[in-house]
Each structure stands twice: as C-alpha cells, then as structure tokens.
Design a protein around this nucleic acid. Structure first.
Lengths: 219, 219, 219, 219
DNA sequence: TATGAATGAGAGTTCATTCAT
DNA sequence: CATGAATGAACTCTCATTCAT
C-alpha cells in the first residue's frame, strides 16, 4: 500500500506563500458568523463546517483544533482593526480628530459587518485563558496602546488634558464604544433595528460625550 | 405550659419559613465564584456543588436547571448593583457627584469582590438568548436607565451639557467603567495584581476622563 | 424540652392491631394508579407520594424500597383476582359457566377499576426479574393453574374437549381476555371511550369466541 | 480503464449508496436483543453499543435518541410480522388454515428468534405514550386488522361463525398466542427450556383451542 | 410516625477530535 | 485535499435511598 507521500515533496498543501486556499477562507468566514451568533462556547465545529459548506474533517485539515480556529478568527479581525487604527494614527488630522475617527470607524464597521464587531468587542475576555494568553490578549493590548498613543500625542500638542493617564483614557474611550455597541446589539439603544441615520446620530453622541466629557463647565 | 415563642412555634429550627436555606445560599455564592472564574459555558454544575461543599443533586433540589441557577446569580448580583445605584441616585450630592460615585462604587466593589463584578460586567450579552431574554436584559437596561436618569437630572440643573443624549451618555459611562475593569482583570491596566492605591488612582482617572472629557478646551 | 404533645391520646395514627395504617393504604392506592398510568419504570416514588398526599420519606417508612412497594401492589391486586377466581371455581355452575364468569369478571372489573386491571394484566412480565422471581410469578402461575383446574374439571364432566391441554387452554383464555383489554386500553376495540354497553357486548363476544371457537363446524 | 466493478469490486466498502450502513444494522440488531432482555426502560444505550461492538456515540450518529432507536426496532419487527401475516393472508388455503398458520408462524418465529418475538409481543403497550402514539400503535392495530380480515373472509365462506366480531376474534386469537408465549417465556408452560417438539405440541394445542373452542358441544 | 433536605450513582446526550478511505 | 463515519470523555439531569429532626 502506498504510504501517504512517497517523498513528501510537499506537493502544495502548504499555504503557498500568500495565496490562501479558498476553502480555508470559507471556513474562517463561517467561523466569524457562527462565533458571532453563538459565542465562543456555543460555536460548534459542525456548525462552522455546515455554514462553510465543507466537510466536517476539513476544518481539522486547516486548523489544529477549535481553539486555533477561533484564535485565528480573533487574530484576523483584530488585525483588520489594528491596521485601521494604525492608518488613522499615521494619517492626517489632529489627535482629537483621529480619536473621533476611531469612534466613527468602529461604529461604521458595525453598520456593515456587525458580526465581526461582535466577535471583536463582545467576545474579548470571554474566551478561555488559553485564548487570552495567546495572541488575542496581545492584540487587544495593542489596540489599547495604539489609542493611548494617540492620546499621548494629543497631550503633547496640548489638545488633550495633561492630567489624564493615556492608557486609562484609551480604555474609557474603547469601553464607551463597546457598551454603546452592546446597547445597540441588545436593542436598548437605537431600538430593535436601528436605521443608518440613527447609528450616525449615536456616533456623534459618543464622540461628543467622550471628547467633551459630561460636565458643562470645567471645575 | 411555656409555648416556645411568641409567634413561630416551630419546634425544630426548620428552614425558618421565608428565610432562605443556608445551603441554597452556599450554592448561589459558589455559583458566583465559579461563574466568574470560568464564564457561562465553562461553569459546570459539578464545580459549583464542590465549591459549595454540597452534593451534586442538591443543586437540582434548589434550582430547576443550570440556566435557572445562573439566571439567579445574575439576578442577585444585578439587584445588589441596582440597589446601590438607586441609593446613590436618591441620596445627596449633585448629579456629577452622584455619577462620580457610581464610577467609584463599581471600582470599589471590584476591589472587595472582583468575582461578583466580573459576573456582572463581563458576562452581560455573553449568556445565551434564553438568559438575555429573561430578567438579565431587563435589569441591565434598568441600570442604564438609572444612570441616564442621573444624567438627565444633571442636565436640568445645568451641571451636564444639554446636547448629550442621556441614554448614550449612560452607556458610555458604564462602558468606560467596564473596559477599565476588563483592563484590570486582564492585567493591562494596573499591572498583574494592582494595589488598592493603584485602583484608587484608576478611579480618579476614570472619573476625570468621563466627566471632564478628553479635550483640554471646549470647541 | 417539652414533648411534642401534652395529651396526644393517640387519636388514631397507630397501626391498631391488624388494621392497616390509613396512610399505608393511601400509598398503596396511589401506587396502583401511578403504576397503571406510567408503568413499572416510569413510576417514581415521588409521584406515588404526591398522589397519596404524604411526605416523600413516609413511603420508605412503610416499604423497604420501590420493588417491595410495587411487589405489594402486584400481590394485593393478584390476591383480589385469585380470591375472585377461587370463589368462582368453588361456586355453583358448570365448568363452562364458570369460565364464562371468569371472562366476564375480569372485563367487569376493568369497567369499575381499569387501573387495577392494567397493573395486573399489562404489567406482568414487564417487571424486572427480581419481581418476577418473587411472589408475582407465583401468583400469576396460580391464576393460570386455577383456571386450568376449571378446564380440567370441565373435561371430567365432558363439557370440555378432552384433547386440550388444560394449562395451554387456560393461557389462551386469559390471553384472549388480556389482549381484548389491551385493545380496549389502546382504543382499538370499543373506540376511545367505550360505553358500558359496548364493554358488555365485548364480554359476550370474548366468551363466545373462546368457548365456542372460531370454526363454524367441527372437523 | 476498469470500471468500478462488475458487480461488487468496490475498492472501499463504502456505505454503498442506498444500502444501509453495516454498523447501523448492527446497532439495530443489538437493540432488539437488549430490548428483549431488559425491556424498554431497562435497555440502556451503553448496553446496545457494547452489544453491537460499536462506540457509544455512534448510536447517536444513526439515531436521534433512545426513543427513535427503539421506535425503529419496533417498526422493523412489526414490519416483518406484518409482511408475514400479509403473505399468509394473500396466500393459499382456507381462512381457518390461514389462521392456524398465523398461530404456527408466531410460535415458530419464537423458536428461532425468541428475542424479536418478546419485543414484539411483550413490549406492546409497555412503551411510553410517545411511542404508542407513533407508528407502533398503528402497526399493532394493523396486525389486528389483518387477522380480523382473515376472520371476516372466513365468515363469508362460511368457515367461521357469523356471530363473531372479527376484531374481537382477532384480538382473542393474538392474545391467546401472546399469553402462551408469555407462559413459555416465564417457564410456566413447556418447562424451563422447552424442546422444539414441546413447542410444536403447544402450537397444535393453541390452534385446537382457538379454532375449535373449549366446549365439546355447541350450544 | 412523619417530613423533606441531602446524597450520589447512573443514564442520556453532546461534541471535539481522529482516521480510514 | 476532502469526506464523514467512528470514538469516547465530559456534562447535565434524574431519582432511589438515607437521615437528621
């Protein structure tokens, strides 16, 4: 009986520099959707395979195990977000304008790809330690650091108050976005199925709240 | 003949009508801890029973099933928080002072009972729909509304900017708190095991950020 | 400590020589009903206790365990049947008349106490070996023997064909009754809720079929 | 290029489109045996899997749950019986001969496959309502109807007494067979392990009893 | 007698993972 | 690459039985 591979010349099963097998992609996309819909633990391999229209076992051909799959989902989504944040940071505009862009960007993405955002935002810290210990935590931290960097630069230029801790400020800003999104998802804000205009209005509100603060006068 | 006592002639210290059985309480407490440590799906009945020091089956004596148990946990924790928020709202102080108190209160509780806070904050929206559809969503919404009410009153007294939407503002405030807590839990803020002083500092930072906003000058 | 009851002149709860405690009786009655409704394995102690209106533990006060309880139910029901069969046997009438009475008796009882009959007839051989090994098998066999005795006597008087094996004949007769009852219970015979008249008609049919046989002419 | 096969050169014994997977069959067979040995409620999935020599989970690969498995067992066995009855009915012979064949057939099958018969005969009406409501009740009724049809035809040809109700007669006949089998199973008839000859003798006895009736003379 | 809280073994079901084809 | 049958550990839930009061 011929063994699997006479010489193992690696005919091609390797991710072949850059070009990713189409089915791998399908699985990843499916995972995002299922993940978003059912959460980390509710997301079963069978669901992902069915959603992707591939055979059960193929998932294990491309991913070591469930954790690696979901870790990949996280990583990919975060990478997209990080790239966007980085683009904003290295782009034009004052720090305050950049931070406003961050708010708008996330809520904008939600409008077009709510699943991805849910995965990104709502599932952080929900995954098991194994995940958190992995790249996810790092990328999450990276996002906070990136935003805190914008804050720090704003402090240098005098746009942002010096007394604020950039990291805490970044956390507050991202947290404000997150819970606004949660409110949206749960239907507490914006109603059961918010219109695009409504979401735009919420964007403006979040920006105003976070940048300007609640108080009408400075103490 | 001396009757045992004025009203309650219960010969044996029976589960004292109306008062909650001690073991039920133990199970609930254990559930909070396990829940916080492992999340909704990672939380197994066996863990809860062991943690509570009771037999497996007893959990099912007091609770219909896993969902009802965890729903109870949610309900209890939220009730505690809601009561505290309500106490703050109906207490003394200006609206801004009250909102500052809210920030401080949650972070304070975290210092003394991090598990409860994790359950409360980190698990919202993570539970299955059955839970979200239940009392949890309502109480979550209640919390947002309570805070938004404080905001609204602050707008009436002129302390808080009129252009802000109270609900969005409340969501931002609670979100800022939440992600700061998440940062604490993950060790991104305050280091691996933050001192009480460090947490106090973070409290001040969050209050300053949220109430005063990021911008050093108003547009 | 004051004892339970200053006077407590034993109003009656004592087993009072020979007289069976009222609650024991209630449990037994309840067991018959539950047993009939749910079958041996579907019958839970909790159901019996609730149906009897007594506390859980009391069942174990009067009966060693579930098997003993259900064995008691069997024994009691069979005893009633055996006594009736014996009364018929030692009573007046030819053998054929007696056997007709047996048919009528069982179907009659069904009319007034279908539960008891179901337990008696439908549950034989369904119970675990432990039960079958016990008195149930013996009483079941006793019933067959009793009927076969009537058959034997009929053969002696020439009423019944000599070529028949009394035991097989008895089994056939009881079997005919049983499946007719099953048909009644399942609604295949007599419709969903048969009238008394309908049951009477079935009685006559069974008697005619069993005693006279199917064939219109003897070979 | 050699086409797949002349008839059966299947390189891999794949589940052969359309044909039933071999292991599914093994599970079904095992279920019959375990079912017969322990009854509906005593029959555990683990037993079936072990008996079939397959892994626990495979049972759930082929069957939704325990009820569906046992329903399948019922359905299959009844189908076999129904087919046999139908074959007898549409075959040659007078009605009386056909009915005699029915008696002989069932007792014959018992000789070669006692398990299947036990399942078929002894477990009817013992299963939970869910089962009874399903195909089982219908097929049971179908069997009674099939036999009653033979009776009716016998009445038309004058072989069978006109005064008998075909349905009741059919029930009596099948009941006679059933309780004779029960007697066999319990060792009340034919002794602990009856020889084939003994069973043949019982067959004759049952036929004689049912067809000819008990009475030696017609009233 | 009587109660019902407490126990824990056992059974059904799910699902990540492996493997032969 | 691709498939999906096969495996079995893990988990939820049930219920007979015990026991302190």
């Amino acid at each position: 009986m011929p063994h699997r591979n006479s010489r193992r010349t690696n005919p091609r099963p390797r991710p072949e520099e850059g070009s990713e097998p189409e089915k791998r992609r399908a699985i990843l996309h499916a995972a995002v959707r299922v993940f978003a819909a059912k959460g980390y633990h509710g997301c079963r391999i069978a669901d992902v395979a069915r959603q992707a229209g591939v055979a059960y076992g193929l998932v294990y051909h491309y991913f070591q195990n469930k954790d690696e799959l979901l870790e990949s989902v996280f990583a990919e989504q975060w990478t997209i977000l990080l790239n966007a944040l980085e683009a904003i940071r290295s782009g034009p505009g004052t720090s305050l304008e950049q931070l406003a862009s961050v708010c708008r960007f996330v809520l904008d993405v939600f409008r077009t790809a709510p699943d991805a955002v849910r995965v990104l935002i709502l599932e952080v810290a929900r995954a098991p330690d194994s995940l958190r210990a992995g790249s996810t935590r790092q990328t999450f931290e990276a996002a906070v650091r990136l935003v805190s960097e914008m804050v720090r630069r704003g402090q240098e230029t005098g746009e942002i108050r010096h007394e604020l801790d950039p990291m805490v400020t970044a956390a507050c800003l991202l947290g404000a976005i997150e819970l606004t999104l949660t409110g949206l998802v749960l239907g507490i804000l914006g109603g059961p199925s918010p219109s695009e205009q409504e979401i735009e209005r919420l964007e403006g509100q979040v920006v105003a709240t976070v940048l300007g603060g609640l108080a009408s006068t400075r103490r």
